[in-house]
Design a protein around this nucleic acid. Sequence first.
DNA 1: CATGAATGAGGTTTCATTCAT
DNA 2: TATGAATGAAACCTCATTCAT
Lengths: 211, 211, 211, 211
Amino acid sequence: MISQIRTHSDNYDLVKIRREEIARKSVEVFMKNGYEETSVRDIAKACGMSIGQLYHYIGSREDVLYLTLQYTNSRIVDFVQNISVKFDTVAPTKALQQAIDVYYRGVDSIQDIVIFMYRHTNNLRPAARKQVYKYNEPLVGVFEKILSRGCETGEFSIEDIGLIAHNIVTSGDMWALRRWFLNKRYTVDQYMESQTALFMKQISTNNSKIK
Amino acid sequence: MISQIRTHSDNYDLVKIRREEIARKSVEVFMKNGYEETSVRDIAKACGMSIGQLYHYIGSREDVLYLTLQYTNSRIVDFVQNISVKFDTVAPTKALQQAIDVYYRGVDSIQDIVIFMYRHTNNLRPAARKQVYKYNEPLVGVFEKILSRGCETGEFSIEDIGLIAHNIVTSGDMWALRRWFLNKRYTVDQYMESQTALFMKQISTNNSKIK
Amino acid sequence: MISQIRTHSDNYDLVKIRREEIARKSVEVFMKNGYEETSVRDIAKACGMSIGQLYHYIGSREDVLYLTLQYTNSRIVDFVQNISVKFDTVAPTKALQQAIDVYYRGVDSIQDIVIFMYRHTNNLRPAARKQVYKYNEPLVGVFEKILSRGCETGEFSIEDIGLIAHNIVTSGDMWALRRWFLNKRYTVDQYMESQTALFMKQISTNNSKIK
Amino acid sequence: MISQIRTHSDNYDLVKIRREEIARKSVEVFMKNGYEETSVRDIAKACGMSIGQLYHYIGSREDVLYLTLQYTNSRIVDFVQNISVKFDTVAPTKALQQAIDVYYRGVDSIQDIVIFMYRHTNNLRPAARKQVYKYNEPLVGVFEKILSRGCETGEFSIEDIGLIAHNIVTSGDMWALRRWFLNKRYTVDQYMESQTALFMKQISTNNSKIK
DNA sequence: CATGAATGAGGTTTCATTCAT
DNA sequence: TATGAATGAAACCTCATTCAT
């Protein structure tokens, strides 16, 4: 959905292209300088546009924030979803481990972006905020799907699949949000393995536990 | 530790009192208007001080942020610690449940402050940021202590006490950080109970499980 | 006279047609949003033209103002003149009353345009301003003609016909310019009748007065 | 009344002084460059203030317009009122002539300001506009008072004193508003005398007329 | 000690006009 | 011929901080 943001152009395709360009480049400056510290002038420069051109495709500075958050959310979700499809034929336990692996390593490689998303989604006006949240939700879905499959095969026994999936995701996010704390004790691999092990304790059937 | 912040006053006690006042009042305005939207003038007014007087006790606007983060962290940690002392004589399982109860309900009642802390700690310059982190650490310690005791009594069986404690705390924080997601599915009580149950799966000895 | 305004087109007739269209549509937007608040983009949209096309018929934004002022002046003058012709065979006193009736009611029905004209004619560069003034002058002439005829028939006795005619017109304009004042005390009809009566006192011969 | 305009200062006296300063100086620039063409920077410079200082005493550029309109209105009304008091002991006919003389010459000497007032009062937001109108009203009252006195002494015979007074004022204003028309035909003295003579025809009792 | 007036750089946004397509 | 994307100067306004009183 492109709308909500004021444009001076009716050329839908061009707007779409430019906005993605803006999102992609803006994330970079925001990562480098921080959102609050980045002026519209900086944004325009980073996008290789004149200020006027920039304002053809957005209505306000906040719209750039929205575009970046939307963009990064989509990128992350797409990334995890795309990879997860491959796990559809893998045994649930294995699939789960691999999905966690993908997501946690992903978080590790874009720590700053994850932090950025947690910090600045609240800066958006309510309507935009909700949109961004919506873009994020499928992420939990990826894990729910695997967990469901595990329950069906009898590998997992779970009361509330949604909560576990949510915990898996947020534990991953925490690797970024609390790296000041976790960095001192773990590497990503250690963190990932430990957490995975803990999750397994919550979901494994006695069967698998005995093994 | 008071230092790091430049003062125009040598009266140590007065400075301390005033700074706590500033922190207390500033949190209120920040919650109401947001940090970025609150000007030094607003802060001074909220504190019932003149701008000049305010600048006797702080060196810059950021110092106010530091004071509030320090203050709120301390308040939270103190709160949980104070209550937890009472659990020292309670059986670890019970104590853990009660501590989670206290913390999660606490988070629920100051959701905005928790979000504020996660968002704005990064705004501080590194030195101050580390200080604030340090103020937060004892919180995990509260849970570590209970878990340790449980291991000693044989009620719990835990490989990495620190990680579990950390997970307990951050799961609580998530109630605030992702309320847009969790609110739709749970009440605070449901969330708390479900999470507690899940943690128990990770730490209970077979012994207690059988019960 | 079309000139003064730079064109990109040599098709004289087309230019004329388009400019009238521009004037007609622009008055509408100007009335709705005000001249200062209406951008060239808004004007183009209101005219159903692209910005580029608009600039084929005008040389600058101010030209649009000129066109609208010229257009509205002409419309008003034409309107009063057309109707006044019908009065040529009517007794001067009657004719005057009817002409006043027509003009004052006319002003009442386009109050905003009258105000607009008084306000914005000064925005034009001197040459254009003079043109617009010239377009307005025939209006006074309409009343001068009636007054002259009345002097000839002996119904009126006037020292300075031009001044009375001017006063009649400007009193009408004042119904728009000072409606904030006059609205509180009069309806158009009352205002019109009272002013007409006062003008009669200034121009009636003793003859007619006795009646 | 000072209020309505946002201040950053609570020092009532200082605000009053500065605002009068702003009004006085701003009228000058506005007369020189026009309101629309005068930037806030220009205003500040004309006032001998920094932009920041200017914004201590106003909330927006429009407030400066309000201040100037309020100021000039007050100046005009005060001027006419002050002079008119002297006429209280003069015979009404004489007093009226003198008051007209004072006002019309006044208008002549500040033509640009009168035009400015008619043009830009509409730029104000409604509340401010009404205030400015209110400041203008006593002007009509000055003439009403004289006319009333004339009716009491029997020199004048008037049906609607308010309307005549209003006409006297607006005829004076027209000397400024339509000087492009009137200049060609009259000097200010001629205009004044002719209009006065015409007003006398509307208000003189037969008595005085015979004389 | 206390005050709050003053600073002015720099923020975001608009918009008349041009010109490559 | 017609389009509307692009320009970028300049508009208004804010605000952390200082310092004379």
